[in-house]
Nucleic acid binder design. Structure first.
Lengths: 247, 247
DNA sequence: CGGAATGTTGATATGCCTCAACTAAAGTGG
DNA sequence: CCACTTTAGTTGAGGCATATCAACATTCCG
């Protein structure tokens, strides 16, 4: 996470919302009037924990946030990954208590937006509320796809699908660099996302590598052959509900 | 679904929203002013299909609706089950195209609410919009739990967990009768929800039966020993975000 | 009453998990 | 900057949970 001098968190949020929603000038103005407190997280640091009652929502400015469930025996189940522009817990606006935790994958910088600010903005600009509501609904679509991915696909296509999704979303947000995108997760975490054992992750990843379609390396997903990867994964991006297809 | 003469769909929605949200008189009035078109579905009949662009939202009046993904090879992955009072596709209000289908499990009666009506009501009563937004967020929490259930739990606790959830939600909505609740699914469908093969479903269900904690019989989930069932499932209902605990 | 859908049970196969030993890389303090 | 420790990744052997296949029983429904 190179700390760049000139990151404009507002611009990041505006760009992201525009990927799926139309924003009027007034909506943009309303966004620019929000109070933002940017904070840097170390890899693996929690932003909120299961059981918390946060008073602000998170906006990912750079890096990646992940949501996860903590199981009684201490294991983790990663639920979703959130790139720059995402607001991974706008849900806390309307649901008192966190039912999951949110942590940084690699070094990550996060802006907090006080709930009060957001609610006031919603009142003035319902269309802004609808854009963020839509964002939470797309989130839900991503969860649904994860249910299907982890329940109905075997190890190789399952991993391929997750890679497709992260790469595709990165690309849609202009966060990819050529054939690669940022994904600083360990094989262990990948296993906790996909519901497979570490040793299996390793073997399946090697297998994926050998197909020449994709790879995970130095904290990056590398796409060597998109068509092949997407076919292996049976990846259909329509569930992401983006206005423009980056691939 | 016995067709009863005196079902009031408005009352069902109001009761449901009150399980997690506070409604003012004006919100209730706004709900009662909505246009509802009730329609009966036969078992297995689709209400909307993947790819559709519905112009109305569904409200379950009686029976159960299920959401599912259709995979390229024709298999299904059931994603969630929706009881009376649920609005399983309010998402279509803000997301153009359906990324999944919705079908009836047993005979089911569904009310359609035109999107225009809802949006107009939201404009007059933002708090009503927030209640329904909250509903969609709880939905998302249920999806997250399904990810964890299907990815991190083995067959027996996985099945127990789904039974717990459906029974608990039924009870919260006053839809349970003693120790049982309506759940007219076949073993095949149960397998398609839990990501296990039909034969396995059968064996695991027998096993569950033998623990004396729960059962699925005549289209009903029967809870013989709630504490045992909940323990088997590691069931923690907090993700349902209900104001009052029915158990 | 007959046919289709659903449920039951056994035998066998296999994909993934577990355990374990080891290598490589990354972070840390002297 | 190097030795040391910790964390991450790699690979093999073996076992087990669940899938698959197959035959049959049962219930549902027209």
């Amino acid at each position: 996470m190179q700390r760049e001098a000139a990151i404009d968190p507002y611009a990041i949020l505006i760009r992201k919302l525009k990927e799926h929603s139309r924003l009027q000038k007034e909506d943009v103005a309303e966004i620019r009037a929000l109070t933002l407190m940017v904070r840097d997280l170390a890899p693996n640091e929690d932003f909120v924990r299961q059981g918390d009652r946060p008073k602000a929502s998170a906006l990912v400015v750079s890096g990646i946030l992940a949501r996860y469930h903590l199981l009684p025996d201490g294991r983790r189940q990663y639920l979703s990954f959130h790139l720059a522009g995402d607001m991974p817990d706008s849900q806390a606006l309307f649901v008192d208590q966190m039912d999951h935790s949110v942590c940084a994958l690699g070094p990550t910088s996060v802006a907090s937006i006080p709930h009060g600010d957001l609610m006031a903005a919603f009142e003035r600009r319902p269309s802004l509320a609808f854009a963020i509501w839509r964002e939470t609904l797309i989130d839900a679509a991503i969860f649904r796809e994860a249910i299907t991915n982890n329940s109905a696909r075997s190890a190789l296509p399952r991993m391929a699908h997750l890679f497709c999704e992260i790469y595709y979303r990165s690309r849609a947000s202009g966060l990819s660099t050529g054939d690669a995108c940022h994904a600083p997760m360990t094989l262990g975490q990948l296993g906790e996302a996909l519901g497979m054992a570490l040793a299996t992750v390793n073997r399946v990843l090697s297998e994926l590598r050998e197909t020449g379609s994709g790879d995970l390396k130095n904290g990056q997903i590398v796409v060597r052959d998109w068509d092949r990867l997407a076919e292996l994964a049976q990846f259909d991006p329509s569930y992401l509900h983006l206005k423009r297809q980056p691939l």
